[in-house]
Design a binder for these strands. Structure first.
Length: 455
DNA sequence: TTAGCCTTGATC
DNA sequence: GATCAAGGCTAA
């Protein structure tokens, strides 16, 4: 919080301003030297040894309100709050003072009169032209993104040299390093072993979308999808939307949700979700063309992940609730039913992360669902090669879609985030499978007994 | 809206 | 590596 101690100290030892009235500027000689370039501390100017810099930094006082300052902001020494205040207000039309235009601006009163505060900012030499304009902000953000990508690539090279270097056989194919990484993400060897097999972060990894204005305006930065790709994307998106739509208020269940459901009740509540999943895969042409026994295996192998993914799809980030046929249900109901704090928090964090990336983009939800479905490593699969080929197809389709929507510049970030999310999903699915293994089968719906292998 | 903390690139 | 000075994020 703001502190007035530095002012008291200076008055006590007589080092600073000779009893300035609140109206007078309280800045010392180092503020008032307009020749002092930003970035050069008063210690440099006065010839103080460099080792004293930190001490000097602690002793600075805001020229506007007298609060503790860390250094120069917009050409004058100010505290964090006056810096933020100036940034927000310097370019806006000046407000009128409700009094005589000579209000006291100190730590206590600085909020009372924006007019006198902004005047004092200008008086002590703060410069509005040092606030970055939109073009400068944009350039700055582009540099941040560029560096992030560079750091990511070098990190990948250090952590996974084999992934970073394209293999001979990949040369000339449309598989990028990242695509290869995604392809390999299902390999059991590469799944990190963690406690309960759950994702490590205690907090959700929130994805920050690049601001609209940062997306390139030049069409050459976007992939043009083939007609076939467009049809496929349209088909799966429509199919997904149609099956998720039943949750979005079409069939409202008049009975309120139970506040503390048991684990059995929780499992049984997924019955409709599983039926939606079956309806969805029934509309995916590539799934229909698979041999029947592999269709069943694929469905069983991915059902837990699919249910979890659909819970994320109906998760409302702003309210921390699931939107189901009974209305909005707080995520806290999971806590009691699951009775496992790590699984519960991993589930909620997964929903937050996934929703922060995909938002309400049904094409991406559908693609993520299909990638969970087509897993050549799954149990009891007979034609693994075909499943691997289908997996390739949808990974590339996902990459192309991201490039068409978010540009070549930003597609990588999305792809990496989705890859991480699918890894987390796999581990969360395994944790849930362990938990539901011990339920009493007599209380579980027949369809769920079958798909969850609980018989 | 404010104010504090954080991240970042530039500079020394 | 330390420091400075921008903007971003977010609880209050």
């Amino acid at each position: 919080m703001a502190s007035i101690k530095p002012l008291f100290d200076q008055v006590a030892n007589g080092s600073a301003h000779s009893s300035p009235s609140p109206q007078e500027s309280t800045f010392d000689s180092s503020y008032s030297n307009p020749a002092t370039p930003a970035g050069v501390s008063s210690a440099d100017v006065s010839g103080e040894p460099v080792r004293k810099r930190h001490r000097m930094r602690d002793e600075k006082v805001c020229g506007v309100c007298g609060d503790k300052a860390l250094g120069y902001n917009f050409n004058a020494i100010t505290c964090e709050s006056c810096k933020a205040f100036f940034r927000r207000n310097a370019l806006k039309p000046k407000p009128d003072c409700l009094f005589q235009g000579n209000c006291v601006v100190d730590v206590r009163t600085r909020r009372f009169c924006p007019s006198c505060r902004i005047n004092k900012c200008f008086t002590i030499g703060m410069k509005a032209d040092m606030i970055l304009d939109d073009a400068e902000k944009r350039a700055r953000m582009e540099k941040v993104v560029e560096n992030r990508n560079r750091r990511f690539v070098s990190h990948e090279k250090m952590e996974h040299p084999a992934r970073a270097e394209p293999r001979q056989e990949d040369q000339g194919s449309s598989h990028s390093v990242l695509t290869t990484a995604l392809l390999k993400s299902e390999s059991p060897k590469e799944i990190p072993v963690r406690h309960y097999g759950l994702p490590k972060p205690s907090q959700a990894r929130m994805f920050h979308h690049p601001p609209r204005e940062l997306l390139p305006s030049d069409p050459q930065f976007y992939r043009r999808l083939t007609e076939e790709e467009k049809w496929t994307l349209n088909d799966i998106s429509t199919a997904y939307q149609a099956t998720i739509a039943t949750l979005h208020g079409a069939e409202v269940d008049p009975n309120p949700p139970k506040a503390n459901p048991s684990l059995n009740e929780l499992i049984n509540s997924t019955d409709e979700t599983v039926r939606q999943l079956i309806r969805f895969v029934g509309k995916v042409v590539d799934f229909q063309q698979m041999r029947k026994d592999d269709q069943v295996s694929c469905l069983k192998n991915s059902v837990m992940q699919s249910v979890l993914m659909r819970s994320a799809c109906v998760y409302i980030l702003e309210k921390d609730v699931f939107l189901c046929s009974k209305g909005e249900v707080s995520t806290s109901f999971l806590k009691k039913a699951v009775n496992n704090a790590s699984v519960y928090s991993a589930h909620v964090n997964f929903c937050k992360s996934m929703k922060s990336i995909i938002l309400n983009n049904y094409t991406l939800w559908a693609l993520a669902q299909i990638l969970a479905l087509f897993n050549p490593c799954g149990a009891a699969i007979i034609d693994r090669e075909m499943l691997s080929t289908l997996q390739d197809k949808y990974i590339i389709l996902l990459k192309h879609y991201l490039e068409s929507e978010f540009s070549f510049t930003f597609a990588t970030e999305y792809l990496v985030a989705i890859q991480d999310m699918l890894s987390d999903l796999k581990m969360l699915g395994e944790a849930y499978t362990t938990i539901i293994f011990n339920v009493n089968p007599t209380e579980i719906e027949p369809l769920l007994l079958e798909v969850f292998n609980l018989k």
